[in-house]
Each structure stands twice: as structure tokens, then as C-alpha cells.
């Protein structure tokens, strides 16, 4: 780090935050909650899975052949970890999504109960640590929820068959269902993955059906910015997509602000735009910034705030889950967030 953050550094700092927030989007929502367990796919021990081999997995760099059932899966994607665990496979290497999770093998709290055997090695999420990957002796590497570059893909492929995101998605925007299918395919277990997807879809549909008010309401998800304003997220972003799956729509005044990007910023002076929504979802992914926002008179003056139509997400793990989107994070989000959304619209 240099003593004076240059323009480039400031920009990348911001981008890194957003990417991290996006990257964090990969956990599945299964916390250690009994009722959630049955919804996930049948649990199979790594190595005993039958599967269809050789499996051919198309992706953004072409296609990867997996010759036989993988025994040791390394992964560079937060959502991949959840998906693998949902399929009964404990990865041998996982990315470092949140330093607090390191003590428990880098696995998100909502997925932790599914870890079997040895805890995974935690590798840096910032830069690929090839030596660590090699030392983990993987026979499959997945990086679906990761911005994998071609040269890195080539290098990783020399260590083991490597599966990047499917074609047609910007980094960190692969939806949980496509992710499940991609990971499932690389294990030769497409049918199991389809079962997971169906179970998760049913849960979302049930939550939406139980709350018909969602479909007639407009919601905006906000994450406080450094300068007293907020970030908002477009409909193709996992955060907003979660709300959309529950039936919420986005106010037209907000929708037009994105201009093709997955996020936009609203200045502290324009918080009034947020009052176009029936409910706000305040994701406090960064505490100091959230404090600053909620202490400001212009935020407190919002009609949505005065009328308590704000669903707050203050728990750090839940805030990460919001930007995760996986077959295990989704049930966790549904359980925690749906009641708050209902209360905000009451």
C-alpha cells in the first residue's frame, strides 16, 4: 500500500468492495437449521458418488472434461462452496470470503453443519494461490462464482480439470440455479443438482405465495456508501434478484438510474428518491457507513423511514448472505428476511 491512494487505488478499492459484496453472494442459505436439511439434495460422501462420466461441462472458455468422479474438489467461489456442500461434498480448499469464518474452515455459518471430515484449507480470495491449490491435490477445481481469467484458467487446468462460470454472465452474477447446475454437471450429477434447484424454487414460491402483498409492492435494497449516500442494485444483481423472486418490483424512478451497470449510487442529497419504494431493505454490510446514514436528518426524514417501512439487515453474516445467492444461502435468507419484509409492509 502506498502512502497516498492514487486515483486508481481509490477506484479499485470501491470496485473491490462491490466485487467482494458480489463474491460473497455464493453461500447457500442452509444454516444449521433442522428443517432446512431435508430440502437439500441427498447427501453423498465424496468419492462414493456414482455420477455420469466422463462429464463434459461447457463454460465461458470452452468446455472441460471430467473423466471420473472427483474425490478432492478445490473451489474458488463462495457460492460453489455452498453448492458442493449441498451435494454432500466437503471441498478440500475454499476461498477466504470473510476473515471471521476462517476459524471454521472458511465455510459460511449457514453451511457449516454440512462439513464432513477434514475442514477445508482457506486460500486468499484476492489472488489465486496456485501453490496452495497444488498442495491440496485436487482432482476438480470449480470457480463458478469467481472472476476467473483465461491465463489463470489455463494454469489451474494443469493442476486439475477446472470449471469456470457458464457463458454469458458478468463476473459474480451467475444466479444460484445456474450455479448449482454448473457445479452439479462438473460432478457428473446433473439430476441431483436439478433436484436441489427445484427444492429451492419451491421454497421461494411458497414464501411468495404466503405473502401476496410482496407482488404488489415496490422495494429498493440499499447499502450505505462512504459519503453519506447509498448504493442501490439493479435487477440483474443477486441482491435485487432475491427480492424480485419474492414478487417485489423496483420503482421506475430507481430502475432508470442503472444505465446497464449492476449498481448505482445515490447522493446524500437525493435520498428522496428512495421514497418511491413501499419498503426499503437496508443491508448494513459496513457498520460505520450505516451509522452515518441512519444518523442523518435527511435519512430520518424519509417517509419510508418515519413509517418504519425498512427491513434492516444488521447481522454481518446475513448481510453477506444477501449478496451471495446459492442453494444454501437462499433458505437462510428466506427464513431471516421474509418476516422482516412482512413487518416492513404491515
Amino acid at each position: 500500500m502506498k502512502s497516498n491512494p492514487s486515483l486508481h487505488q481509490q477506484l479499485t478499492t470501491r470496485r473491490a468492495f462491490l466485487a467482494a459484496a458480489g463474491a460473497a453472494g455464493l453461500g447457500l442459505g442452509l444454516a444449521a437449521c433442522g428443517s432446512d436439511e431435508d430440502a437439500s439434495a441427498p447427501s453423498r460422501k465424496a468419492g462414493t458418488a456414482a455420477g455420469d462420466f466422463p462429464a463434459r461441462v461447457p463454460h465461458k472458455f470452452g468446455a472441460t472434461m471430467v473423466e471420473q468422479a472427483p474425490q478432492r474438489v478445490a473451489t474458488y467461489g463462495g457460492g460453489d462452496v455452498d453448492t458442493l456442500l449441498a451435494l454432500g461434498i466437503t471441498p478440500v480448499l475454499v476461498p477466504d470470503i470473510d476473515p471471521r469464518w476462517k476459524k471454521t474452515g472458511g465455510v459460511a455459518p449457514w453451511s457449516r453443519s454440512r462439513v464432513r471430515g477434514e475442514a477445508p484449507v482457506v486460500a486468499s480470495n484476492e489472488a489465486l494461490e496456485f501453490e496452495k491449490v497444488a498442495a491440496a491435490r485436487p482432482d476438480l477445481i470449480t470457480a463458478v462464482e469467481y472472476d476467473l481469467k483465461k491465463p489463470d484458467y489455463n494454469k489451474l487446468s494443469q493442476l486439475a480439470p477446472t470449471v469456470p462460470p457458464p457463458k454469458g454472465f458478468a463476473p459474480y452474477t451467475v444466479p444460484w440455479d445456474k450455479m448449482a447446475l454448473q457445479v452439479g454437471a462438473s460432478l457428473g450429477r446433473r439430476a441431483d443438482a436439478e433436484g436441489l434447484v427445484k427444492a429451492t424454487r419451491d421454497r421461494i414460491a411458497a414464501a411468495a405465495k404466503a405473502n401476496p402483498k410482496f407482488a404488489s409492492s415496490k422495494a429498493v435494497l440499499i447499502d450505505p456508501d462512504d459519503d453519506g449516500g447509498v448504493y442501490i442494485f439493479a435487477e440483474n444483481d443477486v441482491r435485487t434478484r432475491f427480492l424480485g423472486d419474492l414478487g417485489f418490483t423496483m420503482p421506475a424512478e430507481i430502475e432508470r438510474l442503472f444505465k446497464g451497470q449492476f449498481y448505482a449510487q445515490i447522493s446524500a442529497e437525493r435520498l428522496d428518491l428512495l421514497d418511491t419504494a413501499d419498503a426499503l431493505v437496508l443491508v448494513a454490510s459496513r457498520k460505520p457507513q450505516t451509522r452515518q446514514l441512519t444518523a442523518s436528518r435527511s435519512f430520518q426524514a424519509l417517509r419510508t423511514v418515519r413509517e418504519k417501512r425498512v427491513a434492516r439487515i444488521d447481522e454481518p453474516d446475513l448481510a453477506i448472505a444477501m449478496s451471495y445467492s446459492s442453494v444454501l444461502s437462499t433458505p437462510y435468507q428466506l427464513r431471516e428476511v421474509v418476516p422482516r419484509l412482512r413487518a416492513a409492509l404491515a
Binding site: 481509490q10 468492495f17 476473515p99 462512504d226 453519506g228 459496513r286 457507513q289
Partner: peptide, 20 residues
């Protein structure tokens, strides 16, 4: 520590806005 990182970023962003 994540919280320290958030606080540090909040401080070092170099903006005149967002201050008490």
C-alpha cells in the same frame, strides 16, 4: 478484522461529504 477494514475505508475515502 472486517470492521477495522470498513472503518479504515470510511475514513480514507477522501470525501468532503458524509461527515458530521
Amino acid at each position: 478484522d472486517r470492521e477495522t477494514l470498513d472503518q479504515y475505508r470510511f475514513w480514507q475515502v477522501g470525501a468532503l461529504a458524509g461527515h458530521a
